[in-house]
Design a protein around this nucleic acid. Structure first.
Lengths: 170, 170
DNA sequence: CAAAGATTGTCAGTATGCTGTCAATCTCAA
DNA sequence: TTGAGATTGACAGCATACTGACAATCTTTG
């Protein structure tokens, strides 16, 4: 069997490339999120960080990075901005002078409660153009793919890491 | 029928949210692209821009933005970097002093030919963990979704715009 | 205990991405 | 033709992202 001929170099190949579609879809998703949540001055990344801190009070920045799979360097400025908005506070850890523990403030907990419906509207809108069965199929495949590619990303997701600061991890 | 109870506020809801999965997948895709193409000092965005200019020689920056659905502001610096690497050149348009036309240089055309195999390896790797039928299904659904959500993004894709500089457009 | 090694938070540098603005220029209509 | 409006490229400002480095600190090992 002869090898495939060289693909022509055209923009149409880009339109059909997985990487290009993932990028476009991400931009569309952010755009929809910001539109639905414009009353709340919170970005998708900041929202995810708040939720994670709410789920794991007293987590530190490095573990937070593993729990939401965001870059550690980037997370520094995200945390700064959340602190500037008075949604979180940082307390030094008594047993380790390097670590600063993260907690929601009352404001942070409140805005989280208030923004949830808008976030859910946004998430629903992203998939709305598809038929219900197709939505389910897409989410199933995407969940699989992200999970199976976990190690390929700079910051693999390590949900269990969140437990370590409680002394439960091995 | 009673309304659904309020969803608990936990990180697990984030893990299953479409927006979060799109973000993670995009980051994984970029990571794989950069790994496969590390010999070539080209980012995914720069690659797409080069391909588009190759397909539409003499396109201007605004139309390029519509053709690859990248933000016009961002594209300015992308073009600058491609020019600094001597992959493209900009020529003033004779009939419109505002416009600068974009062309590939010989270097640009050469690197494009050379990088194609690496890009194709990268695109294949992104989907590799899935079974072939699932890859097809995912790409089909994603193509649909991006297309149907086209207007929801800041910069909707307008592939036809590329033809206007040839005097064929309406 | 002391040295080697790992971890934590931070920073500098680069590259997207978006919002909003601006001057220069072009187009179109009155 | 001229003045209103649109377009183009550029810029400032903010917010992710990634790379690589660093000092302070902690842990492990000899």
């Amino acid at each position: 069997m002869p090898s495939k001929p060289a693909a022509p170099i055209t923009i149409d190949a880009v339109y059909a490339a997985p990487g290009y579609l993932f990028r476009r879809m991400q931009q569309i998703a952010v755009s929809i999120f910001m539109e639905e949540c414009k009353a709340f001055d919170l970005t998708p990344v900041q929202y995810a960080a708040l939720i994670a801190i709410h789920t794991h009070p007293g987590i530190d920045a490095t573990r937070l990075s593993a729990v939401i799979a965001f870059d550690r360097s980037t997370l520094g400025s995200v945390i700064e901005r959340l602190q500037a908005k008075d949604y979180i506070e940082r307390k030094p850890a008594p047993e380790d002078k390097r670590i600063k523990l993260l907690y929601l403030t009352k404001s942070g907990a409140a805005i989280l409660r208030e923004i949830i419906p808008a976030v859910e509207r946004a998430q629903a809108r992203m998939l709305e153009p598809l038929k219900p069965a197709d939505r389910k199929a897409l989410m199933g495949l995407l969940t699989q793919l992200v999970d199976l590619n976990n190690e390929a990303s700079r910051v693999p997701l390590r949900a269990e890491d969140a437990l370590e600061h409680l002394g439960k991890g091995g």
